[in-house]
Simulated assay, not measured.
Amino acid sequence: MQLPAIRAGRIGLALLLGYLLFCLLYLGSHALRLQPPVALQRGSIDAAIPLLDWSIWIYLSQFLLLPLAIVKARDDADRSRVFYACLLATLIAASVFLIWPTQLQRPAQPTTGLTGLAWALLFARDVDGNCFPSLHVALATLSGLALWRRGWRLLACSWPALIAVATLTTKQHVVWDTLAGTALAVLAWILTPRLFRYD
């Protein structure tokens, strides 16, 4: 499939359209899910991971990581690849959310200070489902792949890894979600140049 390349002069528009498509797929799959959500159970590893209220800031830092990876991509080809890989990962995940919706019980959230505000904003804008696979981890991993190709190896490994851990310490996902999110990122990264051409 032929798609427009994401060039340096179009980044702002691409980010806006990409976010709108993400919202349509992510929220739309939740609204139209074909069956009641399956309640995921936390395993022994999940139970051993503590709830760290402050790690919400690491969790939310993905909204900086993703645009950074697109803005600072090595070239237009890499920029286009990470952009369309993120959309492909979102489409695949949304298909799973639609057919097999999953849900976790949300933790009690702090109500004071900036950290309380961050939790309130997350719960106000996010849906209480769409757990498996973790799209949060998938998009962070794809961003890391783009930064790795840019040559920012330490950042490419550490930031997505911290976000993946934060999905567990905020109790937004379980271990299986994060592993599935990583696999989804690798699949989308491999498939994107095989399915799409950027002109």
Score class of each variant (00 low, 15 high):
residue 169 T to A: 13
residue 145 L to F: 10
residue 176 W to M: 13
residue 163 I to F: 00
residue 170 T to D: 01
residue 124 A to Q: 13
residue 153 R to A: 08
residue 179 L to R: 03
residue 135 L to C: 06
residue 124 A to K: 14
residue 179 L to E: 09
residue 147 L to N: 02
residue 177 D to Y: 03
residue 176 W to E: 11
residue 125 R to H: 10
residue 125 R to F: 12
residue 178 T to G: 00
residue 135 L to M: 08
residue 145 L to N: 01
residue 122 L to A: 08
residue 120 A to Q: 15
residue 164 A to D: 13
residue 121 L to S: 13
residue 176 W to A: 14
residue 122 L to G: 00
residue 117 L to A: 09
residue 160 P to E: 00
residue 119 W to I: 00
residue 164 A to S: 15
residue 184 L to C: 06
residue 176 W to Q: 12
residue 146 A to W: 04
residue 128 D to R: 09
residue 153 R to V: 07
residue 148 W to P: 03
residue 143 S to M: 00
residue 184 L to M: 03
residue 142 L to M: 08
residue 153 R to E: 02
residue 161 A to C: 15
residue 168 L to C: 07
residue 117 L to R: 13
residue 141 T to S: 13
residue 168 L to E: 14
residue 179 L to T: 01
residue 178 T to K: 01
residue 131 C to E: 05
residue 169 T to P: 14
residue 157 C to Q: 08
residue 154 L to Y: 04
residue 180 A to R: 08
residue 127 V to R: 10
residue 156 A to S: 01
residue 165 V to Y: 15
residue 184 L to S: 03
residue 117 L to M: 15
residue 146 A to P: 01
residue 154 L to W: 12
residue 140 A to R: 01
residue 146 A to H: 06
residue 145 L to E: 05
residue 126 D to C: 10
residue 162 L to G: 08
residue 135 L to Y: 07
residue 163 I to Q: 12
residue 168 L to M: 15
residue 157 C to K: 03
residue 156 A to E: 02
residue 164 A to L: 11
residue 132 F to K: 03
residue 126 D to S: 10
residue 140 A to T: 06
residue 174 V to F: 01
residue 116 G to Q: 12
residue 176 W to Y: 06
residue 120 A to P: 00
residue 134 S to C: 09
residue 181 G to I: 09
residue 135 L to K: 08
residue 152 W to Y: 10
residue 183 A to D: 07
residue 140 A to L: 05
residue 174 V to W: 05
residue 175 V to W: 14
residue 130 N to Y: 09
residue 170 T to L: 11
residue 177 D to P: 11
residue 177 D to G: 06
residue 126 D to G: 09
residue 159 W to R: 01
residue 182 T to L: 13
residue 169 T to I: 03
residue 138 A to Y: 09
residue 133 P to I: 00
